[in-house]
Amino acid sequence: MSENLRQMLDLGLFWEYRSILLAGLAFNFYVFAASASAAIVLGFLAALARVNPLRPLRWLGAVHVETFRNAPDYVMLVWVHFVMPLLIGQAIGMRVTFAPFVSAVIALGLVYSGYLAETFRTGMQAVPRGQIEAARACGMGGVLVMRRIILPQAVRMMLPEAMNNFVSLFKATTIVSLITVPDLMYRVQMVTQQEMRPLPLYTGAALTYFVLIWAVAALARAGSERWRRKIWA
């Protein structure tokens, strides 16, 4: 076995720094949780706009989706962190800076709101018209129909796709080190600079991410499948 390979598989170094590194992993979760929440809210609003009878709103929703869904995570991150504060600063005539964490949440929240909006919209449009007419015929108004008839079904229908969106979002949180959010990858780079032994550190990070994402996604899928199956026998 080559020396390189042995080094790569020797995770002792990763283990040695575990508390610092795990604290970094926590940042991945914070970024994930905050940007997922933002993406859900924004994505839902954009989806509502896209299924709205009013043309200007539909158009606005489409622009939102196309803009953010087609922006690369990395470009968006850099743009939000370095360019957006300048533009805002110009507009209000004050110096503005974003904390790295804030930029990360804005950038990822926006990008993934584009994906989630489409997921939401597909789910909402999959509810058959007849069911909505039945609800209207019972005297339900638009809000009740949305809340009691469309959304409960749309959420179930969109879950597998939403799950994919969230997995992608979690993976995307690993690039926030580029704007110095102190996540796991950021800390791996720091430790690497001290120890000059990158292989076990990066391998450890890769394994940690893989096991984590795989396990959580599998659990979430199994749980949601059971819930979905109850209705669509």
Partner: peptide, 24 residues
């Protein structure tokens, strides 16, 4: 308005060819 029309609809029960039950 749609809201007022909704109030009349309460008094009109409708049964559709395709049942249109809410599956959830």
């Amino acid at each position: 308005s749609m809201r007022e029309i909704g109030r009349f609809r309460r008094d009109l029960g409708m049964v559709f060819q395709q049942f249109n039950l809410w599956p959830h």
